[in-house]
């Protein structure tokens, strides 16, 4: 697997190289947006780690350029309190984001999630039965059980749950979830989504205030968390 890291700070590039090479990724480093775009077109990587705030060609620009010709997964790096930037990047086609400062463990988990997803992009459910903890989703029978008990979900709740399961461990923005489950014309109806998520949590989470499965990414969207097997 080849990973392209685009960040203007040498210390961060060095640390990421060390962390990623230990996990057997092949690492390419770019110190600017232009250099990153050149490298990406010369040796297309399997994944891009992209800093949003760079002098000159910034992360947003790089992302737009990349998305004109490739669907390779991109994880953007941002700082705290810049939800607008994160949402903008995700809407431009970034697959996930990480807030600086972050641990390499977190980064590796995000990378695994986006790589797994890109392997079976836009296909139907990647398994007939999904199990995580006490939650079991049987796609074939459209049946959901929690600790063996059958749970009754409305069709929208079921669609919402399976959509998040399909993109598990990956952030889905409010717009993405709304357009996937309700349709593009509902993309801005965040409140409907929130209410459905709250109801869904009441049904599938043991303690809805401490969700094990459906995590909130404040202001951005939701992430279904499931440990990699």
């Amino acid at each position: 697997m080849r990973v392209l890291v685009i960040d203007d700070e040498p210390q961060i590039r060095r640390a990421l190289r060390a962390g990623l090479e230990r996990t057997d990724y092949q690492v390419m480093l770019a110190a600017s947006g232009e250099e990153g775009l050149d490298m990406a077109s010369e040796h297309p990587p399997d994944l891009v780690i992209l800093d949003l705030a760079m002098p000159g060609t910034d992360g947003f620009h790089v992302l737009k350029e990349l998305r004109t010709w490739t669907k390779i997964p991109v994880i953007v790096l941002s700082v705290r309190d810049q939800e607008e930037d994160k949402i903008k990047a995700l809407d431009l086609g970034a697959d996930d984001y990480l807030t600086k400062p972050f641990g390499v463990g977190e980064l590796l988990a995000r990378m695994r999630a986006v790589l797994r997803r890109s392997a079976n992009e836009d296909e139907g459910p990647d398994e007939t039965v999904f199990e995580h903890g006490d939650l079991k989703v049987d796609h074939a029978h459209r049946e959901v059980t929690v600790a063996g008990e059958k749970v009754h979900l409305t069709p929208k709740e079921y669609d919402l749950l399976t959509c998040m399961v399909h993109f598990r461990n990956r952030v889905l923005t409010h717009r993405q979830l709304l357009s996937k489950v309700w349709g593009a014309e509902y993309a801005d109806d965040t409140h409907t989504l929130r209410v459905h998520i709250a109801n869904l949590r009441n049904k599938v989470e043991k303690d809805p205030a401490r969700p094990q499965h459906i995590h909130t990414e404040t202001r951005i969207g939701y992430r279904f968390k499931a440990e990699d097997k």
Partner: peptide, 15 residues
């Protein structure tokens, strides 16, 4: 300001 389910607000905090 956004209308937010209380459980979500508390969930984000406890997280």
């Amino acid at each position: 300001l956004e209308w937010t389910p209380v459980s979500e607000l508390i969930g984000m905090t406890l997280d």
